[in-house]
Design a binder for these strands. Structure first.
Length: 431
RNA sequence: GGGGAGAUACUCAAGCGGCCAACGAGGACAGACUGUAAAUCUGUUGGUUUCACCUUCGCAGGUUCGAAUCCUGCUCUCCCCA
């Protein structure tokens, strides 16, 4: 039976801004047969972060086009360390951490693809499974023999490290990753490797190894590095990395991250990170240009990504929280919330506990924010911020520096909402 | 081994005996304007019991009424010659 892709993947990726480069022949291959393609994920942490979402999207689009995605967790490569983009040798992760990371990443990847139905159902593999049976000598003889040192030296990832130093371990990395490709081609019929553009060098070593080992032909496709228009690094918020793990980055913060993207970035990101169709996106963009203050693009983007990474309920809660915190929220509307609603809204917000005794006596605002809690690192800073009109209690600006906070400020009997600037909330709980 | 230069707050970078908690730039945070955007403007960017006091200028001592600034030793970095 002749294979027909659901659509031209390369064209789709191009339009979405997800295509940086592809090896010649890749497009033909994709339009000719059902292709298995893989992406590798390094278990450098227990959770993926939103930067990893880009290669995840490549797999997702691969599957949507009717091809078969393979997600690889680098249990073996993670033991070596990829020198790409690193300016210095890294410490090796201990095995226990590595195990935990592999398990964490694995679990997250399962969410994004269809692993159960259809001929093109996804597959999840761990390269440790095939590397654990290969001895060092075997590797040197069977694999290392095919690639020359000068070939390996020519890679940017290695070149950039010649001055500062690179261990043999990291130098060898590309061979290890390269062999993954050979293995997947032989055992899973996987002809395509995808990844971020920083992986191009490693991927090409793989296709080269395939050719020289006479294993057939490998193809490659990489996505561009995601940037921010203002030059900052993508994927960082004030709180640091934006993780997929709700324990590390709450769904609320996650949602807020996308909602806060600039107009320029939103136009690019919605193509890259959402699964909305081209007509939907184009229509949204048009509406957005007509009424930019409504931020339809950001909302659609945030909604789509939050639902896929977390779930519909988490999105609803995040939207509700955002509504209260940034909408027409006033002290009155806050006071009308029930305790359970309040807790739901502030689930992802940092919380502090304070004693009822002290509150009854009244606590100077400065002490409350800098001493009893760590909203501010020092009293001086708290004082300056209050004087600069940057602090609110229960959505009401603190005007007096010597404000005494007492039981009258409690909401729902035991909460106080402290706010630093416009976007930073803290929930103080009595008891 | 010989000679030279340097180490200042998140980063870069002034200061070279008192006017220095330390110019300036970047970054970060906040305020105003907006749209929880961008740009722009403004403020803050050691601590405290804040009109004053205390701890900071690689580390340890010393000179001096007084040191980031001068002297001695130590540690580290960079450059030149062997």
């Amino acid at each position: 039976m002749a294979f027909a892709p659901h659509h031209d993947l390369i064209e789709e990726l191009k339009w979405r801004g997800l295509l940086h480069d592809a090896m010649p022949g890749t497009q033909d291959l994709l339009n000719r047969e059902m292709v298995s393609g893989y992406v590798g994920f390094d278990p450098t942490a227990e959770s993926l972060h939103i930067g990893n979402l880009v290669p995840v999207m490549l797999l997702t689009h691969l599957q949507l086009a009717g091809h078969r995605p393979i997600a690889l967790v680098g249990g073996a490569t993670g033991m070596i360390g990829d020198p790409s983009g690193k300016s210095a040798e890294r410490n090796l992760l201990d095995e226990e951490t590595l195990q935990r990371n592999v398990a964490g990443v694995r679990k997250q990847l399962l969410k994004f693809l269809n692993f159960t139905d259809g001929a093109n159902r996804a597959e999840l593999v761990n390269n440790y499974d095939w590397f654990k049976g290969i001895s060092f000598l075997q590797f040197m003889r069977d694999i290392g023999k095919h690639i020359t040192v000068s070939y390996m030296m020519a890679k940017d990832s290695v070149q950039n490290r010649l001055e500062t130093g690179i261990s043999f371990t990291e130098f060898s990395y590309q061979l290890v990753q390269g062999y993954d490709f050979v293995h997947l081609l032989k055992n899973h019929g996987c002809k395509l490797q995808m990844g971020g553009s920083d992986q191009w060098g490693n991927i090409v070593t793989g296709t080269e190894l395939i050719r020289r080992m006479g294993a057939g032909e490998g193809f490659a496709l990489v996505a561009p590095l995601i940037t921010k228009t203002d030059g900052g690094k993508f994927g960082k918020s004030e709180q640091g990395n934006v993780w997929l793990d709700p324990q590390r980055t709450s769904p609320y913060r996650f949602y807020q991250f996308w909602l806060n993207v600039s107009d320029e970035d939103a136009k690019r990101y919605i193509r890259i990170f959402s699964l909305l169709s081209r007509p939907e996106i184009e229509s949204l963009q048009q509406q957005h240009d007509g009424a930019p203050h409504l931020r339809l693009l950001q909302k659609a983007l945030a909604e789509d990504v939050t639902v896929r990474v977390h779930c519909r309920e988490d999105l609803d809660a995040a939207v509700a929280a955002s509504e209260i915190l940034f909408g027409q929220g006033t002290e009155d509307s806050l006071r009308q919330l029930s305790e359970s609603d309040l807790l739901a809204v502030f689930e992802g917000v940092p919380q502090f506990h304070i004693s009822e005794q002290e509150l009854k006596a009244g606590i100077p605002i400065i002490d409350l924010l800098a001493e009893m809690t760590t909203v501010f690192p020092s009293k001086a800073e708290a004082r300056k911020m209050i004087q600069g009109n940057g602090v609110s209690i229960n959505k009401t600006k603190v005007a007096a520096i010597d404000l005494m906070v007492n039981v009258d400020h409690l909401i729902a009997g035991r909460y106080i909402l402290a706010q630093k600037g416009k976007k930073n909330y803290y929930l103080l709980i009595v008891g």
